[in-house]
């Protein structure tokens, strides 16, 4: 009986791509990778060759991914650059959904209170001095920001903070921090503003209208209107 190919290797200008069949058993796969890669005689090259692994509709656990990387690494001059799969777990899907969701909250965040969401935050209410709002994504405040806002909590430098009245004690975006001037002038309205990280890696505050130019990706509406 002729065995079907579970592992196909393609050379590209970036290195090798391994296509792994997603219907055979994982053990079979491992064996065949081991076998196939030992066959390919390229021992004279001393340049490190990167390998992209495509696993189709197979879900690999982190341990299995490590195993495959290890297997490839044992072969001379090969190193796994990426493993891509068409499938993710339900948990991962839910996490992605959460991180891309806008969570509306109608409340006042008072001194000593902390409100944190994984995705974008839409706060209808004020953040009082001593209060803190934190979001994995953007923070939109329909109210007065007088406390601390931290957008892009997980490192997203594209994240922004908007407020109807922008008088924060501190704004943080990703790992950038900016603090308020020691005093706001009484006649300083600070209405309808947004804060973002500019090209020189510093937080800047600008008119809200600038947002569509600064962060066109914020708009998720597709098509015309």
């Amino acid at each position: 009986m002729k065995k079907t190919q579970n592992v196909t290797i393609k050379g590209t200008k970036d290195g090798l791509t391994l296509h792994l069949d997603d219907s055979c058993s994982y053990e079979e796969l491992k064996e065949e990778i081991d076998h196939k890669l030992s066959d390919s005689a390229r021992s004279r090259e001393d340049r490190l060759l990167s390998v992209h692994v495509q696993v189709g509709n197979r879900y690999l656990t982190t341990e299995q991914e490590e195993e495959i990387k290890e297997l490839v690494r044992q072969k001379k001059n090969l190193v796994v650059d990426s493993i891509s799969s068409n499938v993710i777990t339900k948990e991962e899907a839910e996490q992605i959904k959460k991180e891309n969701e806008v969570v509306p909250v109608a409340r006042i965040i008072r001194s000593g209170q902390v409100l944190q969401v994984p995705g974008d935050l839409l706060l209808v209410g004020d953040v009082n001095p001593g209060g803190t709002v934190i979001a994995g994504g953007n923070i939109y405040i329909m109210g007065v920001l007088r406390g601390v806002a931290h957008a892009g909590f997980n490192g997203d430098k594209e994240a922004i903070v908007t407020a109807s009245v922008m008088k924060p004690s501190q704004i943080r975006i990703s790992d950038c921090i900016t603090r308020a001037p020691d005093h706001y002038q009484d006649d300083d309205k600070r209405e309808m503003e947004c804060a973002y990280i500019n090209d020189s890696d510093q937080i800047t505050v600008d008119r809200l209208q600038m947002l569509m130019h600064l962060r066109p990706n914020i708009t998720r509406l597709e098509g015309g209107y």
Binding site: R110, S111, G112, Q113, N128, P129, G130, G131
Partner: peptide, 12 residues
């Protein structure tokens, strides 16, 4: 006022 705000948050 700051402390009042804190207390109001707890009372709520």
């Amino acid at each position: 006022v700051r402390d009042a705000d804190r207390i109001i948050g707890l009372l709520e």
